[in-house]
């Protein structure tokens, strides 16, 4: 069974996966780039057509494969390019966050943010604050060895 490898004592390098919706937050990330805002490099962005494309299994897979934090960034409710996509995503993520917390995983490890294509600064601020939260929480060993009792 995959026991949580004890990472050598080099300074903890957190890994964060960001699912960004193509129309708003991905464009917001681009704008953050054009405005030369900076945010930690541990955040790796995956482009999805809409926040409603993010299947909870992707998030659980990311946590399982070693991600310490996952953030889903979509359009502000009402601004979705597909009209209702982010409304469905909002319900799905609310339940998933609550379940993760119920399982004992710090709820701060999964975050949902609404960032529009015009909010480059907000994108950078959100990513920086999220990286700090995750750094404070430390490495996410829990979800990896949920089944193997030590």
């Amino acid at each position: 069974m995959l026991a949580a490898q004890s990472t050598p004592d080099k300074e903890f390098e957190q890994l964060i996966v960001a699912f960004c919706c193509n129309w708003c937050s991905y464009a917001g990330a681009d704008l953050a780039g054009t405005a030369r805002r900076s945010y930690p490099a541990n955040i790796k962005i995956i482009r999805v057509p809409c926040s409603c494309r993010v299947n909870p299994t992707f998030i659980l897979r990311a946590f399982l494969r070693g991600a310490d934090g996952v953030i889903i960034a979509g359009c502000h409710p009402g601004d979705c390019h597909y009209t209702s996509g982010n409304y469905f995503a909002r319900r799905r993520m609310t339940l998933l966050m609550s379940m993760l917390s119920f399982l004992g995983v710090d709820k701060a490890r999964l975050r949902v943010e609404w960032v529009s294509a015009a909010e480059g600064n907000k994108f950078a601020e959100v990513m920086t604050s999220f990286a700090e939260t995750i750094k404070a929480l430390g490495e996410n060993v829990k979800l990896r060895d949920l089944r193997c009792k030590k």
């Binding site: 999805v48 809409c50 409603c52 494309r53 299947n55 597909y82 996509g85």
Partner: peptide
């Protein structure tokens, strides 16, 4: 239009 809501439902 390819939003993907159905794939998760």
């Amino acid at each position: 239009q390819g939003c993907g809501a159905c794939t998760v439902a």
